[in-house]
């Protein structure tokens, strides 16, 4: 039997909780497990900078979009190294570039589990605790998803009361 693959989707701001949950899910008593630390560089950001430079009609010189794209990949590699140190288990690192939600789903094609953290509003339980990309991934993931709260989860009181019916 081949090893289980646990994909940990690393996002800035919430990555520690994801790594910790992935470490739990990958403990050796669950059988041989490979952890894939995955991060996606959002291509829209450098694209916007390319666009802004294009808007400076007739201006020569270096396109700052190139620098932003290169720095994006470099910074994300650094983040994954930091994540691997925290994980303290053997892991593979993968940086993808493109449309974040699509890339994550594609990376989960043969995965046995995807681990990720809620990346939105953490003050209350509810749909706003999931950002746009995460919402898409949860809806489309081709494998089980472990979705954790980055810190302690809010109280049940944070759910608004049900609407009153007559």
């Amino acid at each position: 039997m081949s090893a289980r693959t646990v994909v940990a989707w690393i996002i800035e701001g919430t990555w520690e909780a994801t790594v910790d949950a992935a470490a739990c899910a990958a403990t050796p008593d669950r059988g041989e497990t490979e952890v894939l630390l995955l991060a996606v560089v959002d291509a829209a950001v450098s694209e916007a900078v390319h666009g802004a430079f294009g808007g400076l009609f007739g201006r020569r010189g270096h396109d700052p979009g190139d620098a932003v794209a290169a720095q994006g990949v470099e910074g994300t590699h650094e983040l994954l190294v930091q994540a691997e140190q925290r994980l303290d288990l053997p892991a593979r690192r993968e940086v993808r570039v493109g449309r974040v939600e699509r890339e994550v789903v594609a990376a989960c094609e043969h995965a046995d589990l995807l681990v990720c953290s809620r990346d939105g509003d953490r003050s209350r339980l509810g749909p706003h605790s999931l950002g746009r990309h995460l919402r898409f991934v949860v809806d489309h993931a081709p494998c089980p998803v472990l979705l954790v709260w980055p810190d302690t989860s809010p109280d049940l009181d944070s759910i608004p009361p049900p609407p009153r019916h007559r």
Partner: peptide, 12 residues
């Protein structure tokens, strides 16, 4: 656009 944006990206 040319000088500040890459710095802000690096900062974030």
């Amino acid at each position: 656009v040319v000088l500040l944006t890459p710095v802000v990206f690096r900062t974030a």
